[in-house]
Write a protein that binds this DNA or RNA. Structure first.
Lengths: 184, 184
DNA sequence: AAGGTTTAAATGATATATAAATATTTAGTT
DNA sequence: AACTAAATATTTATATATCATTTAAACCTT
C-alpha cells in the first residue's frame, strides 16, 4: 500500500457561536490588533500571534477563526479571544460553541505526475493549465477537493476532520496507481 | 393533475383612497411609529406591528399598505390606521376605498428543475444566471411573473387576487410537465 | 520579487431581479 | 420650455455574487 511522504495541516477554519450580540466598535476600541471598517466588511478582524490566526468577529456573536495549523490551536485561539474580551470588560456569558468548517492540507506523493494523462483517465476532474497549473479533482467520499500538481505535491481542501485528510490522500494515491498514472 | 406541495402568500400590496387631503406633519407629530422625511420621499411611513405592515401615507389622502400576509390583513391594517388617525383628532371623513394591487407568493414544486433546459423550451422566458439565479417567466393569463429556481421553489408576483396565485402555480407546473422539464 | 490565477469553508451586509401603488425631484430628450 | 423617465421609499419570497480572512501548491505577468 502506498504511503504519502508527508502531510501537513496548513489551515483550519472554524466557526464559533457565542449566543449573544456584540458591540464591535467597543471591541475595536478596547482591543489592539483589530481592524474594523463596517463599510468595507461587517466583521471585525482580530489577529493573534499565538496561535497565529485571524479571526472575524460579527455583531451577532458569531466568529470565524482562520489560519491555525490544527483543530486544537483553533480552539486555543478562540478561548484566548474570549478571555481577552472578558479582561477588557466585555461580558461573554456562555462558553463558545466551536465547529471546524474547513481544513486545508498539503502533501507530497514523492513522485511526478503527468497531469495531462491524469485528466484524461480520471473522472470529476478539471485541468486547464493556462488558467491554473494544478489539476482539480473532486472526491465524493470523503467530500474534499484535491489540487494535484505535476511535481507530485498536492493540496487537499474542504475536509471537516483531520482524519478525512489522511483518508483522502491515501485514496487519491491508490486511484493514481490503479489507473497506472503513477507506479512505485 | 400535479399539485404544488406548498403555497404561501408572502406579501400583499394595497392602495387606499381617503378622498381628502392630509397634513403629514401633523400625523408625524401625533402618531408614533412614523417616519417622515419629505426631502427624501414625499410619503410618510407608518409601521404597524399587528398586522405587521408598512404603510405609505401621502398628502393627497392616498395610501399604500405593504407587507401583509393576506387581503384580509391588509384591510384590517388600513382600518386600524384610520381609527388611529381619528383617535388623535385627525378627522377622516369617508370610509377608505381599498384595492389590492399586488400579491407576492412563494411555492415549492417539490422537484428540482433544470433551468437551462426550461429556458430553452419555454417562451416568454429570461434566464441570465450571472445576473440573477432565477428564471423569469411571464405568464399572460393570469397575468403574473414567476421566478423559477433550480431548487424547485418559485416566487409568483403581480397577481391581483389570491385565486390567481393558485391558478398560476398549477399552470406553470402543468406546463413544466407537458414540456418534459419535470416528471412526477 | 511581488502579485494574480484556483479550492474550500463560515460569517453578514448589500447587490442583483420581480410586481404594484403612491408623489416628488432630478436628469435627460425633444 | 415641455415632456418623459428614473430615482427616491415600502414589502416579500427566491438564490446567487461581492466584500474580507486564511492556506498550500505552481505557473503567469509585471
Amino acid at each position: 500500500m502506498p504511503k504519502a511522504k508527508s502531510i501537513h495541516i496548513e489551515n483550519v477554519v472554524a466557526s464559533v457561536t457565542l449566543n449573544q450580540r456584540l458591540d464591535l466598535n467597543l471591541i475595536a476600541e478596547r482591543l489592539p490588533n483589530t481592524e474594523f471598517d463596517p463599510d468595507q466588511f461587517p466583521g471585525l478582524v482580530l489577529r493573534l500571534e499565538q496561535p497565529k490566526t485571524a479571526t472575524l468577529i460579527f455583531n451577532s456573536g458569531k466568529m470565524v477563526c482562520t489560519g491555525s495549523k490544527s483543530e486544537k490551536d483553533a480552539v486555543k485561539a478562540v478561548k484566548k479571544i474570549v478571555e481577552s474580551l472578558r479582561e477588557v470588560g466585555i461580558d461573554i456569558k456562555n462558553e463558545p460553541i466551536i465547529q471546524v468548517q474547513n481544513i486545508v492540507a498539503s502533501a507530497n506523493l514523492g513522485i511526478e505526475i503527468n497531469l495531462e494523462e491524469a485528466a484524461f483517465l480520471l473522472e470529476n476532474t478539471m485541468y486547464e493549465p493556462e488558467q491554473f497549473p494544478g489539476l482539480i479533482y473532486r472526491m465524493r467520499d470523503p467530500k474534499v477537493v484535491i489540487l494535484l500538481f505535476g511535481s507530485g505535491k498536492l493540496v487537499c481542501t474542504g475536509a471537516k476532520r483531520e482524519e478525512d485528510v489522511y483518508t483522502a490522500v491515501d485514496k487519491v494515491m491508490e486511484i493514481l496507481m490503479e489507473k497506472g498514472i503513477i507506479r512505485e
